[in-house]
Design a protein around this nucleic acid. Sequence first.
DNA 1: ACGGTTCAGTGAACCGCTTCACTAGGCGGA
DNA 2: TCCGCCTAGTGAAGCGGTTCACTGAACCGT
Lengths: 331, 331
Amino acid sequence: MARKRATIREVAQATGLSPAAVSYALRGLQVSEETMERVRAAAAELGYEADPIARALASGRTGMIGLLCGSLEDLWQQSLAVGISRGLREKDRYALILDAVGDPARERALAMQLRDQRVDGMIVQPLDPSAPFWAELCESLPVVAIGDSLTGTAGEVVFDNRRGVTLALEHLRDLGHRRIGVLTATRPSTPDRPADVHVSAEGERLGLDIRVVTAQHGLAAATRAAHDLLAEGRPSAVFCFADSIAYGVYAAARELGLSVPGDVSVMGYDDHPMSGLLTPGLSTVDWNIDGIVRAAVRLVSAAADGGARRRRVVQQPTLRERGSVADLTGS
Amino acid sequence: MARKRATIREVAQATGLSPAAVSYALRGLQVSEETMERVRAAAAELGYEADPIARALASGRTGMIGLLCGSLEDLWQQSLAVGISRGLREKDRYALILDAVGDPARERALAMQLRDQRVDGMIVQPLDPSAPFWAELCESLPVVAIGDSLTGTAGEVVFDNRRGVTLALEHLRDLGHRRIGVLTATRPSTPDRPADVHVSAEGERLGLDIRVVTAQHGLAAATRAAHDLLAEGRPSAVFCFADSIAYGVYAAARELGLSVPGDVSVMGYDDHPMSGLLTPGLSTVDWNIDGIVRAAVRLVSAAADGGARRRRVVQQPTLRERGSVADLTGS
DNA sequence: ACGGTTCAGTGAACCGCTTCACTAGGCGGA
DNA sequence: TCCGCCTAGTGAAGCGGTTCACTGAACCGT
């Protein structure tokens, strides 16, 4: 059995100080340089390290940031998780990553868990941004939402989806596409997701014939949905609201013996690292994941340090052409 | 401000019982059915929920399982994380995912953090399985390692790498390949990684001309390494110790204007969901990720519930042919 | 009627750290 | 010299649960 670890009292004993003094000293507060040194030495000697649980109970703080992902199965969220983990490390914090596996009820439960863990703040990719519990959560700790506005006082890193949609649809139109299938990911209880609205509006403005289909998260589900979409009255192009969904279209096309972009064109939305590796490379709307990560990390750590909570960063997209969209204009 | 949450003492007050009784009642211990009901009702009424931090401090348990990933940038580890998150959910536990971002020092720090968080057990994909701190860690909580044996009393889900390597190399040999490049991921301080040893041994047995190159984690690093490997005295096939590394070979081949498998054949190791989507599909060694996830979850939750800690599951590979290996035999 | 079990529940100590209110001593200014 | 203030440090009360040792009552067989 590992020898029981030293407590603050033992350090106090060893230095002839009170536990309180040791507590202060180790955090660089209130005490003279000299005792500070003495305490540090004794702590090192005894191999003392403060117990984060006890500390959290007493102080209500932990230095951790929670990252709550709606569905880690989504490659985009995976990339984000990796980036945020990295980014927080540089701020001397660390990320607790939790995965709601696509279940809004679990999302709620995990959010509460995280709060109870006394995280100093959290970054969320909400499954259900309109759920009422967010407001309550925002009261008790700084929350930063990525991609959606929450019902509550949260920081936000949002996407200019109107612009992103316009970019994608105009690109398709310019290359001569008129019948366009749109594949979105499920968003429980937000049927009127802003981006979807933009699709209809922009589609109309551009004179496009648009059909929207919703897919569950995950490659397999996206493939099934794409299969359905391609099977009946095939559109000339499919615009997907996530690169990982577009991968499903590639898979479905392969199953159906269709070539991309020969028989069907595909546009993604995200720009995931894998997208450049497919054949043909996936043309997509690039949201600059690094920028998002940096913004989210900045917002949450500022808020956790007592800064402003309500702050909004709008991310602008750029078009990334790679060859998955056929030119039908014959020019 | 959110109204302060109810404590156990308030529930005690409300029911006219002692805090101890309430504590027992809520955990279904020691008390009569009737008081149990009364306590539950009062708790619900007051919106009482036990504070996990206080509980952890007092009892030393949390119900959480830590998942420590050496480098979440690796797609394989991402998949594993997702699977484990799912799997633990079914066991009514939940996963805390931490990412060492490829840094052994951080791996150590996070492992200690996790222990201090009082996780009931942890699943690890060690960066440095031979580091001495694992032994110490294994003393204080159940650890399950995936892919490597730890220096300590840990459960293990290991791969029959000898068999996997044989499968891959024999496949290449059967299709007429002789000069083979091998790309492995960095493993700090384990230069003699078993799999690498097998490569040499098997290569010799099969009469192959093998050259091993090590890549850092991440797609970009893999691409660079592959670039180097392909540029000088190009081998006819490259065998990669992870599918995500193989993706780097695809990328490098594209940059160099080489076709896969026309100019260079590629074999992976893992079978990641994306591998079927590439063109050509990546031929790889399938380790059955679902099986691994299930085994790891089973081992760790059994150990956390007080079962045996030292237990070993060996995973067997199968060959998955998809078309990234050219047949040079001309038959 | 009596000692011995069991059952339901109590009180208080604790888990290990933080923090609040307070004090002793040193110092400067009037 | 006295007062007030600052600094360095103390003691004890938490934080919100769990757990151990114990008690009083009910029940048992004899």
